[in-house]
Write a protein that binds this DNA or RNA. Structure first.
Lengths: 340, 340
DNA sequence: GTTGATTTGAGGCACGTTCCTCATATACCA
DNA sequence: TGGTATATGAGGAACGTGCCTCAAATCAAC
């Protein structure tokens, strides 16, 4: 009736507790035949190790490192805050986390930092960095050293990462496109801005956005992406100029840098008859939503990202299966009325 | 450095382990002065009981009952499935759950069922039922018997429930209103349908919906609510008639019964130039989204509801604080592109 | 100053697991 | 057949907590 324990396994397999333990923890010195007997009993009884008791006995401490972009990135900042909060709330969790900020645009710095991580003192790493060959190598090294690796927010599909925690950027872009098409009430042009089209996320969002706009809202012309390269002044200047010269009915901001964008929009005095859509809920985008300068925000819940990353890393360390339904990060649509 | 244990508390307070145990578990036979000494040490060291070790020691089993509406309610069905899934995934959790379906429209049956619950064999109850005086009394009885009580999906604000897990219905209605106003492209009338306006949720959704429509989209006229009383035939007939006679540009479905509504809409052949918005993601609404018969669905994630209910009930049983950020259920907007 | 009640201390066993040690049993090889 | 290497068994201590018993200390009231 009750959950079977190691004792039950020992009895069922007709071996001693010590042997069961050796098998369960893959320690050497057991004949294959005996291993099979034990594993058989495990299956028959449906034994599942009590992780908490095991962690108690071995005084386990999960040591995780989070690699996040540095710089004036509000999204990364709120993700940091969410991580701290999740970590504090799960204080009973035997988990130590370290957050490392790296310059996003310098792949070598990222890899240098990854190399410094001593695999012996590390159980898992969560990475929010662009995929480069160097990063792929670094991931392979970590995996070879037995460290769990998850990609966070932005996937590393061609690396050996164990798991990706985040949303599908193409679908997010499609969602933005659908909202844009339905919100805009007259034909015209749509301005698309981004920090840098080198980022995979921006590319994929654009892909999805364009696909929907082209097939379903052919009355609107989507202009080529305008890049700001993390320079607020440039963002302001470019946006101001385009708004003045062209018949813009919508603005889609694919990346960060929304503060400068919104300043330019407000200055133009056209927030009233423009549909603007941005990504990620930050203090900037939230207040813009409330005030009406942004029509919608496409977001991923940072709290969810943080908690998922911690849960998935732990499951990977324990060799447990991952509860996909809980870890799927949803593409959220935030309007003025459902911010809370 | 490490988490303090009861041993550390004993040392810090200058008392024995037994006394610390008596204080922590509120057992009698300790002088007030000594209690204070121990509690002081707890605060000084920041002691937090290791719930897992405690549960291990006392072989704790959490026994929860979920009261959900019976009948052909797709939302309740998917909530059931989500509960089963959450429960299975958290098998290591020493939790036994029982799901009881009650006829929603019969308050007496609900209360009769609640009376049958033996408080001695029960740690917590989650209720998804309309608030009536009888239900309030039943909640008070459960609380008096030391049972944790949470309201699920639909709040019981005037009862003694410990917690509410769900969304703000007024805000959900406002969100629907905002979407309706922005999606509809010409003046006209909006049809609002509901199973029964006696349900608090429907009333509150209508309130929010009307508020937004009136203040921001005055060009549209919102018709009085049409009630179907859980009768698919009636729903079909009424909707078909209204669509034929009036200049309807949008349909807002506040409750369940979407299958019949969608049948009527499809039959009318007007899904193409109607904006229809419904609540809750079910097989019916999901396929309607994909096919374009529904423009949007306002939803709460049933998986999240289920997991939150389990977590909150456990936290209540253990006297732990609730991690609000994780338990806040969001008002989700689902379009064709972000269903996943 | 004694009595009796209350409060406190000391310790042990349990929970399910890990990780030891030490002794014994079995298999293999010469 | 003996010797050696390998497998297995038996048992114990520990992790942090709960819960129990029994004895000792302290206290209040007489």
């Amino acid at each position: 009736m009750n959950r079977p324990t190691v004792h039950d396994i020992a009895k069922e397999a007709g071996v001693s507790l010590a042997t069961v333990d050796r098998v369960l923890n893959a320690r050497p010195g057991v004949r294959d035949k005996t291993i099979a007997k034990v594993q058989d009993a495990v299956v028959r009884l449906g034994y599942v190790r009590d992780t908490y008791a095991a962690n108690l006995a071995r005084k386990r401490l999960y040591r995780f490192v989070f690699i996040l972009p540095e710089g004036p990135n509000q999204f990364a900042a709120s993700l940091c805050a969410a991580l701290d909060e999740a970590h504090a709330a799960q204080i009973s969790d035997r988990t130590a986390i370290e957050i490392v900020r790296v310059p996003l645009l310098d792949p070598h710095a990222i890899v240098r930092r990854l190399r410094q991580l001593a695999a012996e003192t590390l159980d898992g790493v969560a990475l929010m960095v662009p995929e480069t060959p160097q990063v792929r190598d670094a991931v392979a090294r970590l995996k070879a050293a037995g460290v769990a690796v998850v990609a966070l927010v932005s996937d590393l599909p061609n690396s050996r990462r164990d798991h990706f925690i985040g949303t599908n950027s193409v679908a997010a872009g499609r969602t933005a496109g659908l909202l844009m098409g339905r919100f805009v009430r007259r034909p015209g042009e749509v301005l698309v801005v981004s920090n840098s089209m080198r980022a995979r996320d921006s590319l994929e969002r654009r892909l999805g956005f364009d696909a929907v706009m082209a097939t379903e809202f052919a009355g609107m012309r989507v202009l080529p992406s305008v890049e700001s390269f993390d320079d607020p002044a440039r963002m302001r200047a470019v946006v101001t100029e385009v708004l003045a010269r062209r018949d813009v009915v919508g603005v889609y901001s694919m990346g960060s840098g929304n503060t400068a964008l919104l300043d330019a929009l407000r200055e133009s005095g056209r927030t009233g008859n423009l549909v603007s859509i941005a990504h990620e809920l930050t203090p900037t985008t939230e207040s813009a939503l409330r005030e009406g300068a942004l029509a919608a925000v496409i977001a991923q819940n940072v709290g969810h990202l943080a908690r998922s990353a911690l849960r998935v890393l732990r499951a990977l360390c324990d060799g447990l299966s991952i509860y996909e339904a809980q870890e799927r990060v949803r593409i959220e649509i935030i309007l003025r009325e459902n911010i809370g």
